[in-house]
Amino acid sequence: MHRTMSLLRRPELLIGGALVALMAICAVAAPLLAPFDPIKPVVLFDGADIVRAPYPPGTAGMLLGSDSLRRDLLSRLIYGTRYTLLFCGVAAMLRVALAAGLGMLAGWYAGASRLLDVLAGAWSAVPSLFFALIPLALISRLGNNQLNALAFVVVFSLTGWPETAVRVRVAVRELRAAPFVESAYAIGLGRAAVLWRHIRPNLRDLLLVEAAYAVAAVLLLCAELGFLGIFIGGAEREAVGGQISNDPIFAEWGGMLAKGVRERGASAVLFIAPMAAFSLSILAFNLLAEGLRRRQ
């Protein structure tokens, strides 16, 4: 009862949590929720002729229509939740783990603090999009899907960590003076043991908030890269109007957005649907993070 009242007092936590839960359900139950196969084309006939793709919304039970390869857009969006959240979630967790490690060391050891100042200063001077764009564009050209997916996760996790690391450092410094730390020293624990056993567990709430913000930031980066035609794995060459371009094989929002931007002339929904999915999910994680922060 108390928890329910507490949730109701925090609408941002309620709305953000509900939206994130909805996305998680979509990701887990995608095969049950998606009306069509996200990869298999649905070929429709008008008499003896094949109907031209993309199909408009509402055609043959396709609520959002299809893409130019005759694949149901809604099903691809639902399956896309699975792949996009998986990649972005893993990258965000790695980013927070890296930031937490560096921040804890910097908050605990004075020498590491100087090193963090230099690293964080240099790293945060480079915008995330700039940091990710060139390496990912180059690796995409190699045509190795596994390497491409791995590169996305690694590059995403290497951006944006300095702000979190600095916040963790501040929190560790505040905890350093806490009575329980002195007690731990008094019973003979070493510095590293105190940091690991007593400081780390007390950072849990802060890291939870940072993780939610990190997922939102990684999704934002994924959307911006998708808009510029760079997306996670599963790409094959496709000739569009004489031009060679990448085309997503499996359903992932970044790839859908890239294709939607290219083919928005044929159907605006192709562009609007993944754009809305990205915007809504970023909003959800930002609301969740804000709600968690205020609950602390």
Binding site: D117, V118, A122, W123, V126, I134, L138, L142
Partner: peptide
């Protein structure tokens, strides 16, 4: 000195990213 080192590290990082096409 710390500021100078940070600045140099920032320039080196940007150069390392921009020249990646040479590596690939």
């Amino acid at each position: 000195m710390l500021l100078l080192i940070t600045l140099a590290a920032g320039v080196a990082l940007v150069a390392a990213i921009v020249f990646l096409p040479v590596l690939f």
